[in-house]
Write a protein that binds this DNA or RNA. Structure first.
Lengths: 217, 217
DNA sequence: ATGCTTTCGTTAGAAGTTGTAACTCCTGGC
DNA sequence: GCCAGGAGTTACAACTTCTAACGAAAGCAT
């Protein structure tokens, strides 16, 4: 938002319209999912005629790409805002869950079925690494001497994804398990696979989290 | 396939055409994903004109629903074929992974982003319970006295999803973790989220599996 | 203040999609 | 052999994304 007050009035107007388009797109996605996103419908809601939107986005794909980027950014910001307070992994886990439950479609935009032709631009890789860096920092503070294992050793040999974060092997392993296990529970819950099963998904989430932070799950 | 030799020739023909349609649909899905599935394109490939397919499927949604059902059936059969040999959970895990890697789009059809209006018919709930039953049986044989935990107790109080399977609380917990953790790793791998990270997804899968079956992961 | 130029929004239209309606024609069952 | 019903056809409606060509409006410079 800092660069919305850009140079020329035209650019300001342009940025504003782009933002308005994205806002309508989010409403549409929150209602019916990303697959139901229609440029025409957005145009209609904005009281403007179809092709007008192509001045602002090259096409549906570019709009969705932008939305994915914004979703990543939103998650990274949410995690980081809590991480800078020195929060432990459990707190980050609940930030993640709250963020996901706030808008499941947004979660699936990031972690759901990949869209056919789409390939993530480098910027998104960067945001993804920001999140991972916060996770690694939180885990390093929480359990700096997490036990290593054969797979942790493998991770230590392939730690490009950790950037230059000085997390020890055991912590790399912890952060990765944190990600995959919580995603496992969250994505199944959000997709409704626990629907008729009876138990409380929140308790399952907490149990998996407890297992990660040492308390038995 | 057992009931394909049905009563009348008309029904036999009908079943054959339906199967052919589904086969083309699978090819299309394997290529570009479910969102790119087009009845028109299938008709063209079959040398028949668009609306002809509506004799066989009420619409795109019904076709996709059928495909989801077939995918579930295929997974349940694969798991069951191994489960009846008395295989341990690790063997089932590799069946799951092989099945998923054989056709990622098929995996996402089941466990990916839910399709907008679709709601699973009861039959699918049943197939899902078949899979769970095989998991519970394998875990009961492998680790009948898996330790209970607060969450395991909660599961024991809400065990509708286990049908009348006599698995003890600790086993319910194990089977559920088996599902969510392996799905967490698999779905992220298939969606390409490990792409630039350097480590070997197969080793991560095995590490998570090792954690589940007792060996440290 | 008066151009000039760029951008915006429009309409028209192509090429798709799903899905319905009406018609023909073949075929299976009697 | 008849004939009812199913199969496939074309025509069409209502969508979608997206391109092309045009007019109008607004910013920028002189």
């Amino acid at each position: 938002m800092a660069k919305s007050d850009a140079a020329t009035p035209r650019e300001r107007y342009r940025a504003q319209v782009r933002a308005e388009i994205k806002q309508h797109a989010w409403e549409q996605i929150a209602t019916a999912g990303a697959s139901a996103l229609s440029l025409n419908a957005i145009a209609k809601r904005m009281g403007v005629s179809g092709p007008a939107l192509y001045r602002y986005f090259a096409g549906r794909d570019e709009l969705i790409t932008e939305l994915i980027r914004d979703a990543y950014r939103s998650l990274a910001d949410a995690v980081h805002a809590t991480a800078v307070t020195g929060a432990d992994p459990a707190a980050l886990a609940h930030v993640l869950r709250d963020w996901a439950l706030a808008d499941p479609h947004r979660y699936f935009l990031i972690y759901g079925t990949p869209v056919p032709g789409y390939h993530a631009p480098d910027e998104i890789t960067g945001i993804s690494q920001e999140i991972m860096a916060d996770l690694l920092t939180a885990w390093t503070a929480f359990e700096p001497d997490a036990p290593a294992s054969p797979f942790a050793a493998h991770l230590a040999d392939h730690r490009d994804w950790a950037g230059d974060h000085p997390a020890p092997p055991g912590v790399l392993r912890r952060a990765l398990a944190f990600w995959t296990r919580l995603h496992g529970v969250l994505s199944l819950e959000l997709a409704g696979h626990f629907a008729g099963m009876g138990f409380d998904p929140a308790l399952l989430f907490r149990a998996e989290l407890d297992g990660l932070v040492g308390r038995e799950g």
